[in-house]
Design a protein around this nucleic acid. Structure first.
Lengths: 233, 233
DNA sequence: ACAATTTGGTGTATGTTATACACAGATAGG
DNA sequence: CCTATCTGTGTATAACATACACCAAATTGT
């Protein structure tokens, strides 16, 4: 399953000359699947549903994609999109990496289904490209390869992990936050610290930007380490 | 579906007096489901499979649990386990929060299926208890409730996001890492920074502890902020 | 032009899910 | 005793991925 994904993601497909003209294309199929996932979640993406989007039958999809797993692989890399060029951003690694984190954030905002599926899968050119830009941003800091990779993993991990809460914490409805808040208040004796935090504004709907706060903390931590390193030399 | 989960997780179930004696219990069912998920992944947990573990039919499970979604809710909170008591750890918030992160890490190591499902679900007593201990550790630092919550979210997010890679990066097989490494080397021209990082040891199997490295960076970042705040006062 | 080859789309079948529903047997309270 | 209540079962349904055989279309070589 992975092998075919690699070919689809990284290889160049040659249009066969014989046979009837195809009624769809892999690109169209992937785009339609992403459209469905964006609107109704990954659960709404079934082979039948995607094929139906073109007026074809379920099985017709298998002429373009070996299976659903591979389709999701393609969806992910396409949803990531063209990796950015951070080289024009001045000020060293920090603003570059911050911008990189924010761009990653935007991807997660646009494609919420992404997070449930994007770990430990085969990486496509776009996804690897994103990784490349971050690693490049840290190239001149005196870190070892291992440290660079761990740092990027840390920043990406932070962004990734916060994304599911973003719409909720900042948004209007905040159904999940309200449910949790109600539970905490209902069991105030068991969770005193949580209650105190709530009384002070946590889980609220203020202007506080959870994402930027945490991002700056993470980058501060990296900065401390980098500066300590260059002081050593 | 969520309402029933709240009752199961937070309510006290009273044994009805009439009718036959139940052949299973919710606790046994949840334990069996966790055992299966630990060994073969969440995908192996089907109602049939869990019921079969007791020699009963699929439908018998529905006498104990309203549906699979609720079963997973219960699995998660049970897998989290009793929240720790960090109050005896000396040295202020930092070692407490570090220990908290490591304990969370252990949970993810023991129950790898956890990560795919634990976001945005209803929180059980154990899960909220874990949250409570972390919030309590940051209670005396002069942070606002919003800042505390964002900080805990940041640390937890970091741990959570790194967990899927742990077995791979540190382990012996590292199938995923090898596949990615091969792709990067194969397209060296497109990913120069990544190649340089690999040449310097990234994606390798050294002693480098990705988890502790990132954790210390994250905590450093928090420390900078906390100290800056107390200097202001 | 014609036959062979290759390919796209369809219809049908299989196996796996979760879960609704009706029923049979067990159990305890009145 | 007998009736309400509860447990476990059997059957049915609907959604899902996907294997396979088939027909029709389009191009290539003769």
């Amino acid at each position: 399953m992975t092998a075919k994904s690699v070919e689809l993601l990284w290889g160049s497909a040659e249009r066969p000359s014989r046979g009837p003209k195809p009624g769809m294309s892999v690109e169209q199929i992937v785009a339609a699947a992403i459209r469905i996932a964006d609107a109704e979640g990954l659960g709404a993406v079934s082979m039948q549903r995607v094929a139906g989007e073109f007026g074809f039958t379920t099985m017709s999809l298998y002429r373009y994609v070996p299976g659903k797993s591979e389709l999701v692989d393609l969806m992910i890399d396409t949803a990531v999109g063209e990796p950015p060029d951070l080289s024009a951003i001045p000020g060293g690694w920090r603003p570059k990496l911050a911008e990189w984190a924010r761009l990653t954030w935007v991807v997660f905002q646009r494609h919420p289904w992404f997070l449930a599926e994007a770990t430990q899968r085969i990486m496509g050119p776009n996804q690897l490209g994103f990784l490349e830009t971050a690693v490049a941003a840290l190239g001149q800091c005196g870190l070892t390869g291992e440290e660079i990779m761990a740092s990027v993993l840390m920043v990406n991990g932070y962004v990734r992990s916060l994304a599911p809460f973003s719409g909720e914490l900042a948004g209007a409805s905040n159904e999940w936050g309200n449910a949790v808040g109600a539970l905490i208040r209902q069991h105030a004796d068991r969770f005193p610290a949580l209650n105190a935090a709530i009384a002070e504004g946590a889980f609220g709907l203020s202007e506080f930007d959870d994402f930027e706060f945490g991002l700056q903390r993470v980058l501060d931590g990296l900065e401390v380490y980098i500066e300590r390193g260059s002081a050593r030399r």
